[in-house]
């Protein structure tokens, strides 16, 4: 075992190292917190009929009324009254305020319909994204660094003078992020393998530990300056690739670049371990297929980048949103 780590805040560490470790620690915490289910469907259904405090507020599917209630700063008496409604047998006592029984009953009906509507929406979205491999595949496939493709990809991005940050999906150890930053382009990474992401975070890269599909889905329209997808494009099934490109298209402004760095279909069987080959639904696609998918997603100026002589059996297809 080597010597101890320099703790955060230790005067022996540089300011940059401390900042990078704090950023990495925050990313690790966020990566775990996103796994909390915020209650359960069974509870939320029950709560829809009994929790009346936010009767006209937006209903959040999957969000816990109890969780929100516990965090709300409000007078103890009001909170206790609202809490009592969550406990069978105490609802009647709780209603002995300004609200009438009819108010409570009507609010319950309204809230129940709101809940059912939200559930239908959630189920529809779930069906649309069926087969999306949110559990596991990323860690079955080792992160593939861009290697000799970093230079050509950076050159292509810089030629578009992106108006905002460029996001790299499956950013690995962050080589592309470093190169983009060196070229004066703001870069964000999304990497689902936390152990790999840690290395980029500790060097000062801005990386979120997450699936890029989930990350893009949560970003506002037109909020990015460019998107680079590598690794993830080889392992996601077609059902997930279509919404991935759709979200990428939505988050890019007019004239912004997208870059797909993909493996030759025959390369995966040589590079992946047997569990990955057996368990992962996705498989690498041909360059021509990517051109079709990008076209279908609404991108234009679709073209392959010239081969760079690398022996890694990968190719790059570039495109952009309509100007």
């Amino acid at each position: 075992m080597s010597g101890p780590l320099s703790p955060v805040g230790d005067s022996s560490g540089t300011g940059g190292e401390v900042e990078n470790q704090e950023r990495a620690a925050a990313a690790l915490r966020a990566a775990f917190e996103r796994l909390a289910p915020q209650g359960s469907d069974a509870w939320n259904f029950l709560a829809a009929f009994t929790h009346l405090g936010d009767r006209y507020g937006p209903y959040q599917p999957g969000a816990s009324g109890l969780s929100e209630l516990l965090r709300q700063p409000e007078p103890p008496s009001r909170r206790a009254r609202r809490m009592a409604r969550l406990i069978p047998g105490q609802a009647k006592a709780a209603s002995e305020g300004s609200e009438t029984e009819l108010d409570l009953a009507m609010a319950q009906v309204v809230e129940a319909f709101r809940f059912l509507s939200a559930r239908v929406t959630a189920l529809e979205e779930r069906l649309a994204g069926e087969d999306r491999p949110v559990d596991g595949p990323s860690w079955l496939v080792p992160a593939a660094e861009l290697g000799e493709w970093v230079g050509p990809v950076v050159a292509h991005i810089v030629s578009h003078a992106p108006s905002g940050a460029v996001l790299h999906g499956d950013s690995g150890k962050g080589a592309l992020l470093d190169a983009l930053s060196d070229a004066g382009v703001s870069a964000l990474g999304v990497e689902p393998r936390g152990g790999v992401a840690l290395q980029a975070l500790e060097r000062g890269c801005s990386v979120t530990i997450n699936e890029v599909l989930d990350d893009l889905a949560g970003r506002p329209a037109g909020s990015l300056g460019g998107v680079v997808l590598s690794g993830v494009v080889d392992r996601l099934p077609l059902h997930a690739l279509l919404p991935l490109l759709s979200h990428a298209r939505r988050t890019l402004p007019l004239g912004a670049p997208i870059v797909v760095v993909a493996s030759e279909p025959s390369a995966a069987s040589a590079a992946w371990q047997k569990p990955a080959l057996d368990l992962i639904d996705g498989r690498p696609l041909h360059a021509e297929t990517w051109e079709v998918l990008l076209d279908r997603a609404g991108f234009v100026d679709i073209a392959p980048l010239p081969p760079n002589g690398a022996a890694d059996r990968r190719f790059v297809v570039v495109a952009s949103t309509p100007a």
Partner: peptide
């Protein structure tokens, strides 16, 4: 404290609320 349980299991959290009562 129930607020430590609520993000993970509302029924456990509610049990803690009841315990407080």
């Amino acid at each position: 404290p129930p607020d430590l349980m609520a993000p993970w299991d509302n029924h456990l959290a509610l049990g803690q609320v009841r315990a407080q009562a």
